[in-house]
Design a protein around this nucleic acid. Structure first.
Lengths: 224, 224
DNA sequence: GGCTTGGCTGAGCAGGTGCTGAGTGCATAG
DNA sequence: CTATGCACTCAGCACCTGCTCAGCCAAGCC
């Protein structure tokens, strides 16, 4: 589920977007001021931010600047008044990815959101790292420290799932869904078998264990 | 096990939903009036409420309002007549999360329930805090102050239940329902045993007691 | 102070969970 | 046609977790 943070001092806009975007399947967080918005952005790691230009206190452009210093790739959509094109220019200058004019057309907004998220994902780095592990999803290579590791395609997908969700405990059924697909009806024991193989290969040089078992809960990618 | 409270004055609807939703794996409680519904909501802490708009006595919208004052995040689905769209609008305005029109399509209802519960869970913060206790439900980790604490999955679920309901006295049967599930038929003594283990682990560094016993009533997470 | 009730505790048992090595069937390459 | 490697299954084992039980302790009441 993709997370969207809405920063707008007008509660009616906030509620409207929250309801509508939730319905579209996004997890929506609303902040009613620039300050709250910045702190929520730090805590919640949104995938996209919708930001009102006109706000009391820290205004939209200032919020944008600070968001950018923290994460220069985070997609940001600005909300501007229709009759203030200078805001749009300033916004785009400061690093907004797109803007939508008020009154908001919901269809337009959702379309922009989709396109920005798509673009952002396409830019997602093809190299994943965790501890001394490095995986290149384009070249299909894995290294631990200086040692090259050869994985089968299934082992690779499993490890990729772990590296995309570091420190997050995933149970066997979730892993089955993510790696084997929802149409797999065999025993969850396959997961154990493949985790074992992965560990064997990842620890072949005597390195520490990176995939931990949480009994009764699942597995995590974590340094002890 | 997720708990659903159905508030509807028509017993045939209540029975129908109880049977169907139980079959789907939910624990269902039925209340035949707004008053009873409100008191059951207070006692049973349902995860979701299905609420009929048209009821004698306190009507659905009023029940909704009062539910909202107690817990503004509780997912509520309104049941409305097909030819009363104004009810739907009022309902959504008052804070219902969704509505289903009568006659009820069971498939539609179950789908809405699933999606609401999923959304609600996704919104739940993954880091819970109480005093110097910190629990990360995604990473499955618990710390007290600077000390890491290892819990079994059952101990974890029990502590999570406490941390999601701080300062709220919960009796053993409620805890059994929430942590062990309604299909547990053993002795409530297990709760005592696990509370004891939890305390042991939480206080292993000589810290103060956080889970208090309220004789004759249950347990609370509270600082002295 | 004695009695009753509710809660605490330590020990022990059984089933569940995860790990592992071996083995089967299938596809692809040589 | 054979050899190899991959995905998956299976059964046995070891260990841990969850649960029960019986006896003990503490609080509240008369």
């Amino acid at each position: 589920m993709q997370r969207i943070l809405v920063i707008d001092d007008d509660p009616s806009v906030g509620n409207f977007l929250k309801r509508g975007l939730s319905y579209e399947g996004y997890a929506v967080e609303v902040a009613e001021s620039g300050e709250v918005g910045l702190s929520k952005a730090r805590e919640k790691y949104p995938d996209l931010v919708i930001l009102d230009v006109m706000m009391p206190g820290i205004d939209g452009l200032e919020v944008l600047k600070r968001l950018r210093t923290a994460d220069e790739k985070l997609p940001v959509i600005m909300l501007t008044a229709k009759d203030a094109p200078e805001d749009q220019i300033k916004g785009l200058d400061t690093g907004a990815d797109d803007y939508v004019t008020k009154p908001i057309s919901f269809e337009v907004l959702v379309a922009r959101i989709r396109s920005l998220l798509r673009r952002h994902q396409a830019e997602a780095p093809s190299v994943l790292r965790f501890a001394d592990l490095e995986m290149n999803t384009e070249a299909f290579t894995v290294r631990r420290g200086a040692r090259d590791i050869t994985l089968t395609s299934l082992e690779f997908r499993l490890l990729q799932t772990f590296m995309e969700n570091p420190d997050r405990v995933m149970n066997k059924h979730l892993l089955l869904d993510k790696v084997w697909g929802t149409d797999f009806f065999g025993d969850a024991n396959v997961v154990e078998v493949y985790v074992k193989q992965l560990r064997q290969k990842l620890e072949a040089g005597g390195e520490s264990r990176l995939i931990q078992t949480i009994r009764g809960a699942g597995y995590v990618l974590r340094e002890k």
